[in-house]
């Protein structure tokens, strides 16, 4: 019964971590590469299709993808025994793998924080899920937009650290 062994479960959590990560970063890139640049080109009467239907559904899978990614990632790091070394960026351990995965984990954690504490609360105001004055909506849109762009920027080195730790360092 090989599949009940620790190496199998570690592999299974890595698989779930990658699935969740694709759900998260796929939506992040959809927002930044497709939806946001397309909004100014969409006629006003068609915009509610995005704001009332597509964006709320995309945001649901986006934020819960982020949650599943961090939870499975922390479990995985714990199972692999490098959680505490990685949190300390492998400093003093002379272990390039733990330094690389540690940077990936910190970048991912900052991105998870941005999703749940900056993007989602502000998007709720923008989309009218919670009531907000027009000025407040504008400000919320600016904060959510910049946090989303920050995450797009951070996703590039984060993925280098994650993939590099698995296959190079």
């Amino acid at each position: 019964m090989e599949f009940v062994s620790l190496p199998w479960w570690t592999m299974a959590f890595r698989w779930l971590h990658v699935i969740s990560g694709i759900m998260w970063i796929g939506h992040l890139w959809y927002f930044n590469f497709v939806q946001t640049p397309s909004m100014p080109k969409i006629p006003d009467e068609q915009k509610p299709a995005i704001t009332k239907f597509i964006a709320p559904t995309a945001l649901f899978w986006f934020r819960w993808g982020a949650m599943a990614t961090i939870v499975t990632g922390l479990i995985l790091a714990g199972m692999n025994g490098y959680l505490s070394s990685a949190i300390k960026l492998g400093i003093g351990d002379h272990n390039p793998h733990n330094t690389a995965i540690g940077f990936g984990m910190w970048l991912g954690t900052i991105m998870w924080f941005n999703v749940w504490f900056l993007i989602w609360p502000n998007q709720k105001k923008v989309l009218g899920i919670v009531p907000a004055q027009p000025d407040e909506k504008k400000r919320a849109g600016r904060i959510a937009g910049l946090a989303s762009r920050t995450n797009t920027m951070l996703s590039i080195p984060m993925l280098y650290a994650m993939v590099g730790a698995g296959h190079y360092y």
Partner: peptide, 30 residues
């Protein structure tokens, strides 16, 4: 000054620049 994150292109370029910084940091620490 314009925020570089207002441009998708600058955002991606900054992501690659940060990756170079990250590579140097990993080598410096490990």
């Amino acid at each position: 000054m314009k925020n570089p994150l207002d441009s998708l292109q600058s955002t991606v370029v900054l992501g690659f620049v940060l990756t170079v910084v990250l590579i140097l940091l990993i080598h410096a620490i490990a």
